[in-house]
């Protein structure tokens, strides 16, 4: 319960900040949607598995939004988000059938390989996808409202905030449910799971589908805020960033992924101004330091201190 309260405080803080400092509104929405995607990674991390290719679901949902918006001009933004999530969920369900069989290194690298294929395909089919230039999305109506940029973003911010609250609630419920507890048992003793008659693969598949739809939700929101989708969104580096956020935030509570994303996005914003050339270096070094000094991440630390 404390975790949910912490999430509400964080979200309220973000919304207030976005209203007080309008130039931060876009970064805040981006950060929050990143948090959703990282939460997807965290779900798998609970099962002890790390995917190095989950940005592909972010990318897939974003491109779905772009394609549908182009094919059906005048379609509502909310419908676009739903479609984006649906498509990435279906993709996750299909790819999941294959990858749910693998663990650890194989699981991580297979996801990476699949995401590389998607990245390459988007880049190669220039005439359909716009290649590396990407695709523009003209601003759609949102829940029936035709809005200017600022109003549109406000509405998106509210949508994102509400989705995070709902998602956090449901994910926490999930982790207390039999399915969620089975998923966590994959981390510690998959053999035993099979020997009480539970299909570890099916359990893991469910977790995988959940994670892909969370990444899809993030991608769809991302696409609408930016008004532009590029193959970069599915590049391995983005997947790496998601893993980074998830480790930074920790998996003790869904709150971790959200605050991790906030911390990451603002670190990135200022690091990018100060030292663009060293960005990956900073990222890599921080990652090493987190794993060494704070393997539980932010939420793990808060949980230890009984704050959440």
């Amino acid at each position: 319960m404390k975790g949910i309260i912490a999430t509400i405080i964080l979200l309220t803080g973000s919304v207030v900040t976005a209203f007080l400092l309008p130039h931060l509104k876009t970064p805040i929405i981006l950060a929050l949607s990143y948090g959703l995607a990282a939460l997807g990674i965290s779900v798998l991390m609970r099962a002890g598995q790390v995917s190095f290719g989950h940005a592909m679901y972010v990318c897939l949902a974003a491109y779905s939004v772009a394609f549908i918006a182009k094919a059906y001009p005048g379609i509502d933004g909310l419908v676009l988000i739903v479609c984006g999530v649906a498509i990435s969920t279906i993709a996750g369900a299909i790819i999941g059938i294959f990858v749910s069989k693998y663990r650890e290194i194989f699981f991580g690298m297979l996801n990476l390989a699949i995401s590389m294929v998607l990245f390459a395909v988007i880049g190669k089919y220039y005439n359909i996808t716009g290649g590396s230039d990407g695709m523009m999305i003209s601003r759609p109506s949102f829940i029936g409202f035709e809005l200017e940029r600022d109003g549109f973003e406000t509405l998106l911010l509210i949508t994102t905030t509400v989705s995070i609250l709902l998602v956090t609630y449901f994910i926490e419920r999930f982790f207390n449910s039999p399915a969620g507890k089975f998923l966590c048992a994959i981390k510690t003793n998959e053999t035993r799971l099979e020997y009480i008659g539970v299909s570890a693969r099916f359990v893991f598949w469910k977790g995988y589908v959940i994670s892909s739809s969370l990444c899809g939700l993030a991608g769809a929101i991302f696409a609408l805020v930016q008004g532009l989708v590029t193959p970069e969104m599915g590049y391995w580096l983005k997947s790496g960033e998601l893993v980074f956020i998830s480790l930074l935030g920790g998996v003790a509570h869904s709150f971790g992924a959200i605050i991790g994303a906030m911390a990451f996005e603002f670190l990135k914003m200022y690091a990018a101004i100060l030292m663009t050339d060293y960005w990956h270096m900073i990222l890599g070094s921080t990652l090493i330091l987190i794993i060494y000094f704070a393997p539980g991440g932010i939420s793990g630390w808060l949980k230890n201190k009984k704050y959440i």
Binding site: G240, H280, G284, I291
Partner: peptide
């Protein structure tokens, strides 16, 4: 420094090193 960590975390360490080397 990470000998006792699970293989997947060691993999992430090499991934972090990889990012550093990119720059």
């Amino acid at each position: 420094f990470f000998e006792k960590k699970p293989p997947i975390l060691q993999l992430i360490i090499t991934f972090a090193f990889f990012m550093i080397l990119e720059d």
